[in-house]
Design a protein around this nucleic acid. Structure first.
Lengths: 157, 157
DNA sequence: TATGAAAGGTTGAACCC
DNA sequence: GGGTTCAACCTTTCATA
């Protein structure tokens, strides 16, 4: 499984990061000056290599009725961490889990809930799983940016 | 702009969270027992309301050659925060910025870089913007989960 | 690995209930 | 709100260099 992404791969990733649903292979191909089928094959390869793990909608949970977006900071013993992380993903309301390499707080959970009780439930379930919940913070706003280091110069072919 | 998502909206969001690129409106419509155009209209409405902010590829930065994925913890004065957050988004390598409501560390930045020097650059640029960088941690792995509280029961119409 | 062509599926828009 | 139709577009598959 050789890696090493070239310019075309970069352009594809950049385009898909901006809009993964409404960007067709043909559009990317036009900008890059290659055939649409070439772009499709590259996308398939990126998926097969695991560079592309999936495509997700970026939903505003606040507007979706889930008013509370929280960051839960946890600590897990290193030897159990991998297991605990997977169990944490099954807790209702959890949307992402990150394993942090350095520091005490080595697991960071993002979750959304309908109200404060719901967040309490999530924290309790994480504790029940075996994670030591050390802190919990509400998120006011989240801003995502398409990672554009892939694109060498978006406005030129 | 009235909110309140019904069952169909929930199904749509759930489907798009699982795979925003390869899930057609017709597929969702089949499962929900409505016409494809109804689903398309709902999607358009969710986008117009701002519930759906966009669709992004979930890329494994490690495999993409950006070996270092970091969480940068920052502090910003409340009255400047909004402005600083937007400037932080323009720093090369930054992929997301969260505004945290509670606690000292009220801005959490996620960034990816090619090497340690690159991460140092990012931290320096965030400082230059005016953010007080209080901590920086490397991420070993990130796991995202489709938020399934929308789906009442995926295997039944 | 990139390209081209035919078949089948998907989308968006206009129109009706 | 939801549904139908249709032209334009996209993707899939296969064959080709």
């Amino acid at each position: 499984m050789d890696d090493g992404l070239d310019d075309l791969d970069g352009r594809i990733l950049y385009a898909l990061q901006r809009d993964a649903r409404h960007t067709s292979a043909a559009e990317i191909a036009d900008e890059a000056g290659v055939a649409p089928s070439t772009v499709r094959k590259r996308i398939a390869r990126l998926e097969a290599r695991g560079v592309v793990r999936g495509y997700h909608v970026d939903a505003d949970y606040q507007r979706a009725g889930y008013q509370l977006h929280a960051l839960v900071t946890c600590t897990a013993p290193i030897d159990e961490r991998e297991q605990l992380v997977h169990e944490a993903l099954d807790v209702q309301g959890v949307v992402s889990v990150r394993e942090v390499m350095t520091g005490e707080d080595n697991v960071r959970v993002t979750a959304v809930g309908t109200d404060h009780d719901d967040l309490n439930r999530i924290a309790q379930e994480l504790s029940a799983v075996g994670l030591d919940v050390t802190d919990e913070n509400l998120v006011r706003g989240e801003h995502v940016r398409p990672f554009d280091s892939f694109a060498h110069d978006p406005d030129q072919s």
